[in-house]
């Protein structure tokens, strides 16, 4: 190398861009405000504003004669919400959401466990796609597919007939509560479709939690004489629990608010979502609809609080 060459000239103040860049560098808060401004206006004002306006309406009531909203603060709408018929709807929905979440966890756990512990390399990527595609594929198409399956002339009936098991289906449909005149208009049908549609949301959080269980812990357990069942019960399951809870947040919340599945596949009994839809639409009782939406918000708030205490958010 030769002697010290003259330094390259430092960048000039390149017009407006240069001056603006200097300004942002000296005033990072201005830059932050510009970055955050648009999304905050959109989400903080438009979206949250709408939510609060809705919640506010639940403290108004509907005038029985004119059918117009009476803009005076009252708890009358909440009294109406707690009437027996409406409580029925709430209990039915929560029970369904709980059952769906439980069933989803049972079906999904082996998949997540396999993906976390045994799949590797290309197989792992394939597994990931095999979970992602059903997760992201069209909601309505999934519901539609089950309409095809559960129809009287559909594949399920055909399949059971081939196996000479139609009597089993008939016996099931004859049961109270879970039965009905056909699967597509019974709670059983609603339940199956709910599980099918919302189950994939649980896999990835559980898989992530399981992948964080160190293999040597499992080896240590079997080394200490634990049977596979004991290892599962005392080591794997407790460590995977936050992931299961994290995954269940989605499944539970989505089931709680769904109004399309029970409308298309199910009995005529309402779920919360349908009640909200009916109240704000045909019944024109927006305050009651708003009060109904408070129910899933409160339930999810409690659920999230509990999940946070269990450390489930670290698993997300």
């Amino acid at each position: 190398m030769t002697t010290v060459a003259e330094s390259f000239p430092l960048p000039e103040r390149r017009g407006t861009a240069g001056r603006l860049s200097d300004f942002f560098w000296r005033h990072p808060h201005v830059l932050l405000a510009i970055l955050l401004g648009p999304p905050l206006i959109w989400l903080g004002i438009v979206y949250l504003g709408s939510l609060f306006a809705l919640l506010l309406q639940s403290f108004f009531s509907i005038d029985d004669f004119s059918g117009l909203i009476n803009y005076e603060f009252t708890l009358a709408t909440y009294r109406q919400l707690l009437s027996e018929a409406n409580l029925d709807i709430i209990i039915r929905t929560v029970a369904m959401a709980a059952l769906v979440t439980l069933a989803s966890a049972v079906i999904v756990f082996p998949i997540a466990y396999y993906a976390a512990r045994y799949a590797r390399g290309k197989g792992k990527a394939l597994f990931y796609l095999a979970v992602m595609l059903p997760l992201w594929s069209s909601y309505l198409v999934k519901v539609y597919a089950w309409k095809l399956i559960l129809a009287k002339e559909g594949i399920l009936t055909w399949f059971l007939a081939k196996l000479n098991l139609l009597w089993l289906l008939d016996a099931w449909l004859a049961l109270p509560i879970v039965g009905g005149s056909s699967l597509s208009i019974s709670y059983t049908g609603t339940f199956i479709v709910f599980v099918y549609v919302w189950m994939p949301f649980m896999i990835l959080p559980i898989q992530a939690a399981l992948e964080r269980v160190p293999a040597n812990l499992i080896e240590a357990s079997s080394d200490l004489g634990g049977t596979p069942a004991q290892t599962f019960r005392h080591v794997i399951f407790p460590l995977a629990l936050p992931g299961i809870v994290a995954g269940s947040i989605f499944t539970f919340s989505l089931t709680l608010g769904d109004y399309i599945i029970p409308q298309i596949i199910g009995s005529s009994r309402l779920f919360i979502g349908q009640a909200v839809y009916a109240q704000q639409g045909t019944a024109g009782n927006v305050p009651l609809a708003a009060a109904f939406t408070v129910v899933p918000i409160v339930i999810m708030g409690a659920y999230l609080w509990m999940a946070k205490r269990m450390g489930a958010f670290d698993a997300l």
Binding site: G44, Y47, L48, L54, G273, A289, A290, T293, M300
Partner: peptide
């Protein structure tokens, strides 16, 4: 949290809130 809220809450809530707004 604010960003996640629109999908964390059931869609029907987002929908009806926007509609009434």
């Amino acid at each position: 949290l604010l960003v996640i809220l629109p999908i964390a809450l059931p869609g029907i809530i987002t929908g009806i809130a926007l509609r009434s707004a």
